[in-house]
């Protein structure tokens, strides 16, 4: 009798939670274009930073206007200063050469005949062996492990290799396809996650990056989500080298949401979504941000 009661108790508690979806709130769900040009319908600032080589230097020097350039004046070729990103790039090249001594590391990452050119522009992508979508940093972690080296997703050395690979696609437009199959599903999930309210403040990414572009949090103006991925991993004085998913961690912490570990499927969906919003924008590294 007691055991029957116990089972009933379990049923009563477990069933509603196993079957019903948790209650969630969404910020007004917007449409986006899987191309950097979509910003013309969002913030309209794209025309000011469309060409990284020809930014208005007067705007860059004006604290009221500089955010409208999406901070692209901190990317090459506009930014010619030597910063921590350059040292990271050297480190990444060194690590890559050691890992790729037999050419297996590059092959594992998907380079055809060892060619690194353009590799960065096609990530995240569906990995046939793993049967899931991986970002470049996750692929680096997996492929380095096969060479017997630990390069955790988000670690300095992992991001350094990612930065080196990005430099091999310097100036080439990002181009991931999100119009069919698993990539399309990941894009759709990522868009929804971007609008999902979470954490103690009950805010979504879009509460800031879609619906309040140009407004300030203390003294920092929020910018468009279009075109961001092209300059990651980025050098930040406070964080050394920051991968895109570590930026998600930072934004989560800043807005009161418990962050996830890099490589989690939700962060990867967000990465697919944001990368599609950078489609057509040239890779520009090494870059820095405040």
């Amino acid at each position: 009798m007691r055991s029957l009661l116990f089972v009933l108790l379990c049923l009563g508690v477990a069933t509603p939670q196993a079957e019903s979806m948790p209650y969630r709130e969404y910020d007004a769900l917007e449409e986006y274009a899987p191309s950097v040009r979509g910003d013309m319908w969002l913030s309209g600032t794209y025309r000011l930073w469309a060409d990284p080589g020809r930014l208005d230097w007067r705007m860059a020097g004006n604290p009221e206007d500089n955010w409208k350039l999406n901070w692209k004046f901190m990317d090459p070729p506009f930014n010619q200063t030597v910063h921590g990103g350059h040292f990271a790039l050297d480190r990444g090249e060194e690590l890559f050469r050691a890992l790729n001594a037999k050419g297996r590391f590059a092959a594992c990452l998907g380079a055809r005949q060892g060619r690194l050119k353009g590799l960065r522009t096609g990530y995240p992508r569906y990995h046939a062996q793993l049967r899931r979508i991986v970002g470049l940093e996750e692929a680096i972690e997996l492929c380095a492990a096969r060479q017997g080296r630990e390069l955790q997703n988000g670690s300095y050395d992992n991001s350094a290799v990612s930065l080196f690979l990005a430099s091999k696609s310097q100036g080439m437009p990002i181009r991931i396809q999100v119009d069919k199959g698993p990539m399309q599903q990941a894009y759709a999930r990522g868009r929804k996650l971007f609008h999902m309210r979470t954490g103690r403040s009950n805010m979504a990414c879009s509460s800031c990056h879609t619906h309040r572009i140009g407004l300030k949090l203390r003294n920092v103006a929020v910018t468009t989500p279009y075109g961001d991925v092209a300059h990651f991993p980025v050098y930040r004085t406070r964080f050394q080298l920051q991968s895109l998913q570590l930026r998600f961690v930072e934004c989560n912490l800043d807005s009161g949401t418990q962050p996830l570990r890099p490589g989690s499927s939700a962060y990867t969906d967000l990465e697919v979504f944001l990368t599609a919003l950078s489609n057509g924008y040239p890779v520009s590294v090494p870059s820095e941000r405040h």
Binding site: P22, T198, G199, R200, N202, N252, T257, P259, A266, Y267
Partner: peptide, 16 residues
């Protein structure tokens, strides 16, 4: 911040 819902697909906790 662990007491409130995260972005995880595995998070089944409801928003208030």
């Amino acid at each position: 911040l662990s007491a409130w819902p995260t972005l995880s697909h595995a998070d089944r906790r409801s928003t208030e």
